[in-house]
């Protein structure tokens, strides 16, 4: 997914002379082909995120389209004020590509785990947030970033995720995808949680006869109000799933949406996500998913409990 994301930036650069890549001390060899073909539009800076965000802002003031890439925590935590003032306040079209959204950097500990980035970035006016589920969706959404007029944050997962989207899916920034139509229950998920939710939905049907729908929102902000207004009145139970703190995160945004759009809603919502605690374990992302019950088993059990 990460490679696809960066390859798409290269593709965009071939089509649009205004596209500039700005990295912050990334690994050796990153986008070498871009660097070779467009050395002037390939800026690899040091470990200086605050300055890099400002620099990208200056480029965007001058009508360039910067794509900034570094580890998600460094984009969302360290230079929050630069993102807010330099990018969001000026509403400039800079795309921030955050590596390791969620628990990807499991063995590297709490300094590298982007598990509150959705909450942080959701609070910023003018910012669009996308969180694709697989490489196919990543490419489609990245190609669409060039059409966005303001700043945008891309939450990247680990890579190698199961491909769940194809050319039949109408993938655009701001548009959700119904991956499975709901009965009384609808899962709403984002990022790579959607694969696990789809597996849970299949098991619920096969083993328990429950029609659990799956709505994937690859764009977290702004929410696809149209698809939510269409499907939410048709269901009784909603389970949101995210690889982020529950506080102020993706599920919270769905609760807010229901609160703002449906008077006297009888929809029951259960949010699944991470507790507001620092991670104390290492291991792999999958191990942490199991530890925090971000797995099929918990999704199935939660659904069954809600449907009783």
């Amino acid at each position: 997914m990460r490679q696809t994301c960066l390859n798409t930036v290269f593709e965009l650069a071939k089509r649009n002379k205004k596209v500039v890549f700005v990295g912050s001390d990334l690994g050796p060899g990153v986008l070498d082909s871009f660097k070779k073909k467009y050395p002037d539009r390939f800026l690899m800076e040091g470990v200086a995120e605050q300055s890099i965000i400002g620099l990208a802002s200056g480029l965007a003031f001058e009508k360039f389209r910067p794509y900034v890439n570094t580890i998600a925590t460094f984009i969302t935590r360290r230079c929050f004020e630069q993102v807010l003032v330099d990018l969001c306040l000026h509403n400039l079209p800079v795309t921030l590509i955050g590596n390791g959204g969620g628990l990807v950097y499991a063995p590297l500990g709490p300094t590298h785990q982007a598990i509150e980035d959705i909450s942080i970035m959701r609070s910023l006016p003018n910012l669009t947030i996308i969180s694709p589920s697989d490489a196919y969706e990543m490419r489609e959404l990245m190609m669409d970033t060039i059409n966005i007029k303001g700043p945008l944050y891309v939450r990247i997962a680990r890579g190698g995720e199961e491909i769940i989207n194809n050319k039949n899916d109408k993938i655009k920034i701001g548009k959700g995808l119904i991956k499975k139509k709901p009965g009384r229950l609808l899962f709403i998920s984002t990022g790579v949680m959607t694969q696990k939710v789809m597996a849970a939905s299949q098991e619920l049907k096969k083993d328990y006869g429950i029609d659990a729908g799956v709505l994937h929102l690859g764009t977290i902000k702004p929410l696809d109000g149209k698809i939510l207004r269409y499907w939410l009145p048709k269901v009784e139970r909603v389970i949101t799933v995210e690889e982020n703190f529950l506080e102020g995160g993706f599920g919270s945004s769905i609760l807010e949406f229901i609160n703002q759009n449906f008077n006297n809603s009888k929809i029951k919502v259960k949010r699944i996500g991470l507790p507001n605690k620092f991670v104390t374990k290492y291991g792999s992302q999958d191990e942490l998913h199991k530890y925090y019950k971000l797995d099929k088993k918990n999704f199935v059990n939660t659904a069954i409990k809600m449907m009783v």
């Binding site: 802002s57 200056g58 003031f61 001058e62 360039f64």
Partner: peptide, 19 residues
Amino acid sequence: ASTGALGHGPAIGLGMAIA
């Protein structure tokens, strides 16, 4: 550029200079 939060102007200007 909107300023007031200190230390932002130089980096924004740097981007403009590179541009």
